[in-house]
């Protein structure tokens, strides 16, 4: 298959789109918890390699990627049997965005966050997570997601307003009270 044929297929176009959107997010998510750059690199690449093979069957890329991430992390650390990391803790933590469990303010915040992220588009969610949860600047986010700097600011603002509104509906009228 020639390069043109390979790149012109619909599956490749969709894969590149997903890759651009989620690679930095997945990598940051794994790396922030694993703490080892090479492990995080291997895990992220494995996730996207699997996505590449299954892209035609995947309907919800975000859910699929984070679901696959659990399996890949498990496989990775099974191979490295001498690792000191607690896989259960790691799994819960890595996919924390999709796990419930606490009944304090943190749970409320997380629930609101999850709801807002689910309700918003994939791109908006990726922007919000990179900026708020992994400390990316707007400029860095724009670079990683191949977006315009002003677009990133605009989308982040819209999502932040939604989150504050969601917290208000849950009884937290002033987020400053949580501090």
């Amino acid at each position: 298959m020639s390069v043109a044929e390979k790149l012109s297929s619909e599956s490749t176009r969709r894969f590149v789109e997903c890759y651009d959107l989620y690679f930095s997010l997945v990598f940051s998510s794994v790396y922030s918890r694993v703490g080892n750059f090479h492990d995080a690199e291997d895990i992220s690449q494995e996730v996207f390699l699997r996505l590449h093979d299954k892209i035609e069957e995947v309907n919800e890329p975000r859910k699929w990627i984070f679901g696959c991430l659990k399996n890949v992390v498990m496989d990775h650390y099974k191979k490295k049997s001498n690792s000191d990391l607690d896989i259960d803790v790691l799994l819960n933590d890595v996919t924390m965005g999709y796990v419930n469990g606490f009944r304090d303010a943190r749970v409320i915040i997380k629930e609101c966050l999850d709801q807002v992220l689910e309700e918003s588009g994939y791109r908006d969610a990726a922007i919000f997570e990179l900026v708020s949860m992994y400390g990316y600047t707007f400029r860095e986010t724009a670079r990683h997601l191949n977006m315009n700097y002003k677009q990133v600011i605009y989308r982040y603002r819209a999502l932040a307003a939604k989150l504050l509104e969601k917290l208000r509906t849950r009884g937290i009228s002033d987020p400053g009270d949580l501090l």
């Binding site: 940051s28 998510s29 790396y31 922030s32 918890r33 924390m96 303010a105 943190r106 915040i109 997380k110 966050l113 900026v131 708020s132 949860m133 992994y134 400390g135 990316y136 982040y156 932040a160 989150l163 504050l164 987020p175 400053g176 949580l178 501090l179």
Partner: peptide
Amino acid sequence: KKIIESVLVRYGLVHRI
């Protein structure tokens, strides 16, 4: 942005890189 970041940091939801 500042408010949200402060709240997320306070509740351990931020992992800075």
